[in-house]
Nucleic acid binder design. Structure first.
Length: 570
RNA sequence: UGGGGCGUCGCCAAGUGGUAAGGCACCGGAUUUUGGUUCCGGCAUUCGUAGGUUCGAAUCCUACCGCCCCAACCA
């Protein structure tokens, strides 16, 4: 092995660690090296008919990422060719989401609708070249005549209209002389093609509908196939990256580029779209979830939308890291949630301020602690980041601890509180449980404990150890709060594969806890910054919060090896 | 029975003829005032299957098997 190849391999490995390496970057790099491309231009082309989701994030990171890595640019271009489905609300939301994710298109904001003029002229160009014709065949009939996967299509009786007649009809289509569906403009390619997209695809259809941007200027609109590649060419996009289901469209993409006087020669490449376990990334289904009220909206924290993830408290950097880790390939896959969750925890662990919050309160009375006395104890804000400093928390005779942290008859491996057992209250004292007070129903409603004054701060002078450290909050100044816990939206890994996807919805995807008590240090701001409720997980303030009535979303729980242990024990 | 793709560890994914990267998950073990974090170690004699070519194959050839996409005037 020569040193040259070794160095190359090392360089490639280094690159792989950085931005990730994949077949698309290899193609772009080869094009640049060979001089086929002077400036790399990509584009992210959403249709404004819904909100962006994490699958789009993969594409955004890919397109903007490649442009950045190769010193090129990435356009944000709305694929707004179907005014019956597209809305301004979605346009605005998409722009906001792309920015939130951390990408900047600079001045390169475009719309396919910006090109309706040239697109129309190019349609005329095809007609004049005898490569497109106006077809009056009704929709259903045209469908029949297209043939099947194994049988060729049959020609429409309008297929050989004269150029003059086609020109006239197409002009009148544009002039609004015909109702929706009356006629279409079709490319004249090959009705016997094995590739259905080449069986005289529709280029223009009549749609008497107001467009969010062009208003009533047009009543005929280009189809995706006619608009996309030409838009790429107009913008001098060099690498038009899309998902696998468009692979069959590439011959048509190329045919149009080759038969039109477009200003540049873009190339289309395809990669496998993201599938995430226990959720769904189909805009059709997401739209229905919203429309039918299965979720509170596009930004419901259970939704895989960027708006939902944002409200849930997922940092954009974690999404970018996720996209980097899953890579880009051409094989369909179903990515486990754990792969998404890891970078979320990893990032939040570094930045989230620690606070104490009791989600399911159980009252504790320290019997040997003087009535009416309180004291301030110092607590660390983030052990991962000394610069985050410390804060004071109030301790008193009456406290709340987590219900789950007490068991009357604990199994061997349960380290927490039980009668006679001593534990540490974080940053405070060792306490020992003397008695569990029950109500008439036999439920534990209060713990009577004693504390060891010598353990102030959390260490015993005699060196004795405890097995557990519990979070807690002083009854006197704890603030009531609502906390929302989330599970996956669906109860099965691949809901899209089910006959009835809505039957797969997880009935426990949302749990609302209304009697939580949080540390006062959490109140006073309306910061959306992530916090860690110690021993529980990462949370963020929800917009539903009102003054004095905080509402927190659990972004994600901490890793919980005790829960795992419990599950093992059955 | 047509066309286009894809099959490497439980999940992603490198690898492009020279003897299977990495991440997640999982399993140990150390540290720990979060059963968190961090750390250390383990985890594919094998690349859908079967043949073939070759000194040598996940990488080349052949056949087979499996999965995905395409018959919207959606994108």
């Amino acid at each position: 092995m020569s040193t040259g190849t070794a160095a190359e391999a090392a360089a490639r490995e280094a690159a792989a660690k950085e931005g990730g390496r994949d077949f698309l970057r290899d193609i772009v790099e080869a094009d640049v090296k060979a001089g086929r491309v002077k400036e790399v231009v990509t584009r992210f082309p959403p249709e404004p008919n819904g909100y962006l989701h994490i699958g789009h994030a993969k594409s955004i990171c890919l397109n903007f990422g490649i442009a950045e890595e190769f010193g090129g640019r990435c356009h944000l271009r709305f694929d707004d060719t179907n005014p019956t489905k597209e809305e301004q609300e979605f346009i605005d939301a998409i722009e906001a989401d792309v920015r939130w994710l951390g990408f900047d298109w600079g001045k390169h904001l475009y719309h396919a609708s910006d090109y309706f003029g040239p697109l129309y002229e190019w349609a005329v160009h095809l007609i004049k070249a005898g490569k497109a014709y106006v077809d009056d065949t009704p929709l259903e009939e045209m469908r029949q005549m297209r043939g099947t996967l194994t049988e060729p299509g049959r020609p429409s009786k309008f297929r050989n209209r004269s150029v003059e007649e086609n020109l006239d009809l197409f002009r009148r289509m544009r002039a609004g002389e015909f109702p929706n569906g009356a006629r279409v403009l079709r490319a004249k390619i090959d009705l016997a093609a094995g590739n259905m997209n080449l069986r005289d695809p529709v280029l223009y259809r009549i749609l008497h509908a107001a467009h969010p941007r062009t208003g009533d200027k047009w009543c005929i609109y280009p189809t995706y196939d006619f608009a996309h590649g030409q838009s790429d060419a107009i913008e001098h996009v060099t690498h038009s990256i899309c998902t696998l289901e468009f692979e069959d469209h590439r011959p048509l993409y190329d045919w149009l580029i080759e038969n039109l006087p477009v200003p540049s020669r873009p190339r289309q490449y395809e990669f496998a779209r993201l599938n995430l376990a226990y959720t769904v990334l189909s805009k059709r289904v997401l739209t229905k979830l919203v429309a039918e009220g299965h979720v509170s909206g596009w930004d419901d924290p259970r939704m895989p939308t960027l708006a939902g993830l944002r409200r849930r408290g997922v940092p954009p950097a974690a999404i970018r890291e996720f996209a980097r880790r899953i890579g880009v390939a051409r094989a369909n896959s179903l990515v486990e949630m754990a792969i998404f969750e890891h970078p979320v925890r990893e990032l939040l662990n570094k930045i989230a301020l620690r606070r104490m919050a009791v989600l399911r309160p159980l009252k504790v009375v320290i019997e040997n602690y003087p009535e009416g006395r309180t004291e301030q104890l110092e607590a660390v804000n983030n052990p991962e980041d000394p610069s985050a400093g410390t804060r004071r928390v109030r301790f008193g005779r009456e406290l709340f601890v987590e219900r789950d942290d007490f068991m009357e008859n604990p199994p061997k491996k349960f380290f927490r509180l039980s009668p006679g057992k001593e534990v540490r209250l974080r940053y405070a004292y060792f306490i020992k449980c003397r008695e569990a007070v029950k109500n008439a129903a036999g439920e534990v409603v209060e713990l009577r404990c004693t504390y060891d004054p010598a353990t102030r701060g959390g260490n015993a002078p005699d060196g004795r150890k405890v097995q557990a450290t519990l979070h807690w909050v002083a009854a006197a100044d704890a603030v009531p709060a609502e906390v929302r816990l989330y599970e996956t939206l669906f109860k099965t890994p691949d809901p899209a594969a089910a006959d009835d996807i809505f039957a797969e919805l997880n009935p426990n995807s949302l749990e609302v806890l209304t009697d939580c008590r949080i540390e006062p240090a959490l109140v006073g701001g309306n910061s959306r910054e992530a916090v860690q409720f110690e021993r529980q997980g990462y949370f963020c303030l929800d917009p539903d919060s009102a003054p004095g009535k905080p509402v927190y979303n659990r972004t994600i729980g901490l890793r919980d090896t005790w829960a795992k242990e419990k599950a093992k024990g059955g």
